[in-house]
Simulated scan of single mutants.
Amino acid sequence: MPATAQAVEMLQIAARAADDKGGEDLIGLDVSGPLPLVDIFLLVTGRNERNVGAISDEIEEKLLEAGHKRVRREGRQEGRWVLLDFGDLVVHVFHEQERVYYSLERLWKDCPIVPIELPARSAAEPAPR
């Protein structure tokens, strides 16, 4: 059973929030087949511990504003890998080194990719830092 419309909506909100804080290499994976309690994983890379924290805080804030409840949050103090569990959507915000080490894309390679729609930036607009 593919991801629900609500999970896809949550993914878009979280992806825009991550992008606004400089999140890189955003990937949405439909894990609803192998994982009955989760529809989508969002994988995001932050450049450093501070950036990982800022990205995860922004994602959490935007999803809460949209009326979605957080089930669990782990890893915030270390700033190397933050997990945000919103039920249908689980967000993994990684430091670059952890993203490579754990390689969740490889682990879940058989899962379909869920397209992420981000606002286009003009050439004059700098990437967020």
Score class of each variant (00 low, 15 high):
Arg80Asn: 11
Pro128Ser: 11
Leu29Gln: 04
Leu104Asn: 04
Thr45Asn: 14
Leu11Gly: 01
Lys21Met: 14
Leu107Phe: 12
Asn51Gln: 15
Gly79Val: 04
Leu26Lys: 02
Phe41Arg: 04
Leu26Ala: 07
Ala7Thr: 00
Lys62Leu: 01
Val91Leu: 06
Ala124Arg: 13
Asp19Ser: 15
Asn51Gly: 10
Pro128Trp: 09
Val91Thr: 14
Val100Gly: 05
Val44Asp: 00
Arg121Gly: 08
Arg50Val: 11
Gln6His: 09
Asp57Gln: 13
Ala66Met: 02
Ala5Trp: 00
Ala15Leu: 05
Leu118Phe: 12
Leu43Gln: 01
Val91Gly: 01
Leu63Ala: 05
Gly75Gln: 04
Arg129Phe: 10
Thr45Gly: 06
Arg16Met: 12
Leu42Thr: 08
Gly87Pro: 04
Gly79Met: 05
Ala123Ile: 14
Glu9Met: 06
Arg129His: 14
Ile55Met: 02
Ser122Phe: 02
Asp85Phe: 10
Glu125Gln: 15
Ala17Trp: 02
Leu83Val: 15
Asp25Gln: 13
Arg50Leu: 09
Val91His: 03
Arg16Gly: 05
Asp30Ala: 04
Ala18Arg: 01
Gly23Tyr: 09
Ala124Met: 07
Gly46His: 01
Leu64Pro: 03
Asp30Glu: 09
Pro34Lys: 14
Ala127Gln: 14
Gln6Met: 10
Leu84Asp: 06
Asp57Ile: 00
Arg73Asn: 03
Asp110Ile: 08
Asp85His: 08
Phe86His: 04
Leu29Asn: 05
Arg16Gln: 15
Glu58Asp: 09
Val8Cys: 05
Trp108Glu: 08
Leu26Glu: 03
Gly22Met: 12
Val38Trp: 03
Tyr101Asn: 13
Arg47Asn: 12
Glu125Ser: 13
Ala66Ile: 02
Glu125Phe: 05
Leu107Gly: 01
Arg80Asp: 06
Gln12Trp: 02
Ser32Arg: 14
Val100Trp: 06
Ala17Ser: 09
Pro119Gly: 07
Glu58Ala: 15
Gly87Leu: 07
Glu125Lys: 14
Leu42Phe: 07
Glu96Cys: 01
Arg73Leu: 00
Ile27Gln: 10
Ser32Asn: 11
Leu35Pro: 03
Arg73Asp: 00
Phe41Ile: 10
Leu83Tyr: 07
Ala7Phe: 08
Gly87Val: 09
Pro112Cys: 11
Ala124Leu: 13
Ile113Pro: 01
Leu118Asp: 12
Ala7Asp: 07
Gly28Thr: 08
Trp108Asn: 05
Glu125Pro: 08
Asp88Arg: 02
Arg47Pro: 01
Ile59Ala: 08
Val31Asn: 01
Leu118His: 11
Gly67Ala: 11
Met1Arg: 11
Pro126Cys: 10
Lys109Val: 10
Gly33Ala: 15
Arg76Asn: 05
Pro119Cys: 10
Ile40Met: 10
Asp20Lys: 13
Leu83His: 09
Leu43Cys: 11
Arg76Ser: 02
Asp88Thr: 02
Lys62Asn: 11
Asp88Gln: 12
Phe86Arg: 06
Cys111Glu: 00
Ala17Lys: 02
Glu117Asp: 15
Thr45Asp: 11
Asp19Lys: 11
Ile13Asn: 07
Asp85Pro: 09
Tyr101Gly: 09
Leu63Arg: 03
Gly53Ala: 12
Pro126Ala: 12
